[in-house]
């Protein structure tokens, strides 16, 4: 207890500095989002899995002394063993090496396609939403038309023109894939551009480029990241699907889709061959989706307190 003496009652007046001081630790948007994401166990587990997957995609093919294209017709369709950890396929190729080579291809396609979708969609949607009116009308009608093109027909046409391969698959996915992002960004921008901080920037004389880059995009970045996170598994799945029906990467290159395709041919005799590609496709997709959910919660400003 404080002793009450007369001198304690000397008048000292207010202390404005103290009243204005901010006592809470400063936390940027990203620090706050990371803190929130860390609390989400499922999303963190997914993130760890995806990081491990990425590392394995880089080093996995070198962990065994085989190349993904090395055939050994003496050792076809072997079950997993000390020499061949995931076994071999019908041409005697090591499945462990091929699985990680496949991961490399699948992840590359998934991430590249999602990023390209993101970049094109953000620029297109940002411009359409910011300028609005007639510009928006025309730009969005183009989006509608692209949206209406049957995806498979486009892929097959591109295959004919460009020949099958990685670039073709990615091009095919990006040509139609960015429209989703464009719509998302446009919607966000339409909302944001009426906000007073955007009006304030306009009043200060800011150019449209500055407003889009400094004010609109940074405030849309949360939903953009979430959307890209959801786009990656979609692209991986599409690639797997195309490869499975034979429109994907060509042998001897492997992706999870072609591995699954190869495995189904011998499914009745060696069912375990399907296990690895199928397992990685599903767990990767699940992880990306769970991480996306976690990111959505972490980046949502409405949950910020």
């Amino acid at each position: 207890m404080i002793e009450l003496t007369r001198e304690k009652f000397e008048r000292v007046g207010p202390n404005i500095e103290e009243s204005q001081a901010i006592v809470r630790p400063s936390m940027t948007y990203w620090q706050d989002a990371w803190r929130r994401l860390k609390m989400n166990k499922v999303a963190m587990a997914s993130l760890v899995f995806l990081i491990l997957l990425g590392i394995m995609a880089i080093i996995g093919p070198y962990m065994l002394p085989y190349k993904y294209s090395d055939q050994n017709l003496m050792l076809t369709n072997r079950p997993p063993s000390a020499e061949h950890w995931f076994g071999t396929d019908y041409l005697g190729r090591d499945l462990f090496v091929r699985t990680w080579m496949g991961a490399r291809i699948s992840l590359t396609i998934g991430i590249t396609a999602a990023l390209l979708d993101g970049i094109i969609g953000v620029i297109y949607g940002g411009i359409s939403g910011y300028f609005g009116g007639q510009v928006d009308n025309v730009m969005m009608r183009i989006v509608d038309i692209l949206y209406g093109i049957p995806y498979l027909i486009l892929v097959i046409l591109l295959m004919l023109v460009m020949g099958p391969g990685l670039v073709t698959i990615i091009t095919a996915m990006v040509i139609t894939g960015w429209v989703g992002m464009a719509r998302l960004v446009r919607g966000q921008v339409l909302q944001l551009k009426e906000q007073e901080f955007v009006l304030a920037a306009k009043t200060l004389g800011a150019s449209p480029g500055r407003i889009i880059m400094k004010h609109l995009i940074p405030n849309t970045i949360g939903p953009i990241i979430v959307s890209i996170t959801f786009d990656v598994p979609a692209a991986i799945f599409t690639e797997a699907f195309l490869s499975y029906i034979g429109l994907g990467v060509q042998p001897p290159l492997a992706s999870w889709g072609t591995l699954a395709n190869d495995a189904t041919n011998v499914l009745l005799l060696y069912p375990y061959q399907l296990f690895f590609p199928a397992f990685f496709i599903s767990v990767t997709m699940l992880s990306f989706n769970l991480l996306g959910d976690g990111l959505r919660d972490a980046l949502d400003p409405r949950l910020r307190k």
């Binding site: 009450l4 304690k8 000397e10 207010p14 202390n15 009243s19």
Partner: peptide
């Protein structure tokens, strides 16, 4: 206290 014109030492303690 920090906003008070009449604040005394004790008020901060």
């Amino acid at each position: 206290a920090a906003r008070c014109d009449y604040a005394m030492k004790i008020c901060y303690e």
